[in-house]
Amino acid sequence: MKGAELIGRRVLDRDGTSVGHVHDLVFTQRGQDAPRFELVGLECGKAGLGDRLGYLRGSMAGPWPLPALFRWLGRHSLFVEWSQVRALHADRVELAVARVQLCPFREVSR
């Protein structure tokens, strides 16, 4: 499976409650001499565009309404650890945990 195939899939918690859609994949770098990247989680929620453009945690600036709008839209994004994924289906991602156990994406350190 390609990572891009996960983007846009519906995410359901263990009880079938909607968590939103996958907006981004979170990787960490392992090793220095021959670095490789490992998938550690997913950004899920209702809006993820602002983060991908660098408005939420980056230094991206622009016309004053854009950063505020993207921060407002992304305020409810959640982080799903890859270990919390129970099953992948063609149209959805099922989690092994309840939605309330997920942490806000803005609190995830990169």
Rank of each mutant, 00 (worst) to 15 (best):
K2N: 09
G3S: 10
G3V: 11
G3C: 04
L6G: 02
I7Q: 00
G8E: 02
R10V: 08
R10M: 05
V11E: 01
L12K: 06
D15K: 05
D15E: 15
T17N: 08
T17Y: 11
V19I: 08
G20I: 04
G20V: 00
G20M: 00
G20R: 01
H23D: 01
V26Y: 07
R30A: 09
R30D: 08
D33P: 03
D33S: 12
D33G: 00
A34P: 00
P35N: 04
R36E: 05
R36Y: 00
E38C: 13
E38W: 02
L39H: 12
V40Y: 14
L42W: 14
E43P: 03
K46M: 14
L49D: 05
D51H: 14
R52A: 04
G54P: 03
Y55N: 00
L56E: 06
R57N: 07
G58E: 14
G58R: 07
G58N: 04
A61C: 12
G62V: 02
P63E: 08
A68G: 06
A68D: 04
W72S: 14
L73V: 09
G74H: 15
R75N: 08
H76T: 14
H76G: 14
W82H: 11
Q84C: 09
V85Q: 06
R86M: 02
L88H: 06
H89S: 15
A90D: 12
A90F: 05
D91I: 02
V93S: 08
V93I: 15
L95K: 02
R99H: 10
R99W: 01
V100L: 01
C103S: 15
F105L: 15
R106S: 14
V108F: 13
V108Q: 11
R110Y: 12
R110D: 13
